[in-house]
């Protein structure tokens, strides 16, 4: 029995990757939840918004690299992030003026806006493909590992080496800063409070003199920041593949709904619930069990509950289970 090695293996393949993935999903779900809370529709174009933001970050990173600008051990992409956010904000505000504003004016039903956002999704998808194509890009530079498996083995004398990627740590740190800033904004500033008021009771917000168009604009700005950061962090951690973001839409929505859509705290909790379920259920536990069992007995199979091909089924299943038993999500969100 070797509990330490088992723990390290578990941390390596489940704990650390799921934490990073959870943080990325949480940021994505926060964007979805903000749009739902303020603009009152499920924005199916959110995955593509993440893709677009990440794309701008990739391009600006390449530009910086060609100029020889770098952040040393940190990825250059961090420097490119503000530019990605700015361009994405421009895209979202333009989309709002050209598309969504009209449907707000005619007070279109939410389901209509969902369809409209699906159209926006296809357009954004096309734009991204036209600009950067469909192939895979790695844009993470700087130090690859914060904790290296070989060094860890030498230091600890364990068989199993702990590896922590720089991008994983950056994901968690950036997500923490972003979430803290968002919550400070929503709970402490007058503008943030007016956004919550608008989300809570639109008519009363109007009666209180809150300008709805201003609230909408600020929401899109926040969404641009959240989507770009989420998209760029995901791309840094894995790689930038435009197609992937379309597939991320499901876990991101599942996270938002499971947590309680419209509720920012719920979006964060939902992100981690989905990420941990997905990673745990699709991880082959053979190694961990071998370490834990006496006399180096080892199970015959991989001890993997689900093949990784089914990882999206996990978000879907959790989504349905939660909706069946708690339609407003784990935290109290709006019921859908």
């Amino acid at each position: 029995m070797d509990i330490l090695n088992a723990l390290v293996a578990f941390a390596n393949f489940v704990l650390i990757p799921a934490t990073a993935y959870g943080a990325q999903l949480a940021l994505g779900a926060l964007g979805v939840t903000l749009i739902y809370g303020v603009l009152r529709f499920s924005n199916f174009a959110h995955g593509e918004t993440m893709s677009f933001g990440a794309m701008v970050v990739v391009l600006v990173t390449a530009l910086f690299q060609s100029w020889g600008i770098s952040l040393g051990p940190l990825p250059t992409a961090l420097l490119a992030l503000p530019f990605g956010i700015a361009v994405t904000a421009l895209l979202l505000l333009t989309t709002d003026r050209v598309v969504y504003k009209f449907y707000r004016k005619v007070k279109a039903a939410p389901v209509m806006l969902v369809i409209v956002s699906t159209g926006v999704m296809f357009v954004m998808n096309g734009v991204v493909r036209m600009v950067v194509g469909t192939e895979d890009r790695r844009f993470a530079d700087g130090a690859r590992f914060l904790v290296n498996a070989r060094d860890f083995k030498a230091w600890s004398g364990l068989d199993e080496g702990l590896a922590i990627k720089t991008t994983q740590v950056i994901t968690v740190v950036v997500a923490l800063i972003t979430v803290a800033a968002l919550f400070w904004f929503l709970n402490k500033t007058r503008t943030g409070k007016s956004m919550r008021a608008f989300s809570d009771n639109e008519d009363l917000a109007l009666l209180s003199g809150i300008n709805p168009e201003r609230v909408v604009t600020i929401t899109w700005l926040l969404v641009a920041a959240l989507a770009t950061i989420a998209g760029a962090l995901y791309g840094l951690d894995k790689s930038f593949k435009p197609f992937i973001y379309q597939q991320l839409l499901l876990p991101v929505f599942a996270a938002a709904i499971v947590g309680g859509i419209g509720n920012p705290l719920g979006a964060i909790a939902g992100g981690f619930v989905i990420a941990f379920s997905e990673v745990t259920l699709t991880y082959a536990f053979k190694k961990v069990i071998t370490y834990l069992s006496p006399d180096s007995w080892s199970p015959d199979g991989l001890v993997q509950l689900l093949s990784t091909d089914y990882k999206f089924a996990v978000s879907f299943a959790i989504l349905i289970i939660v909706l069946l038993f708690k339609p407003t999500g784990l935290f109290k969100g709006q019921s859908i």
Partner: peptide, 13 residues
């Protein structure tokens, strides 16, 4: 009222 905001925040709004 604004149900998910505190009483004080309701007054502020």
């Amino acid at each position: 009222i604004f149900p998910t905001m505190t009483v004080r925040e309701n007054l502020e709004m």
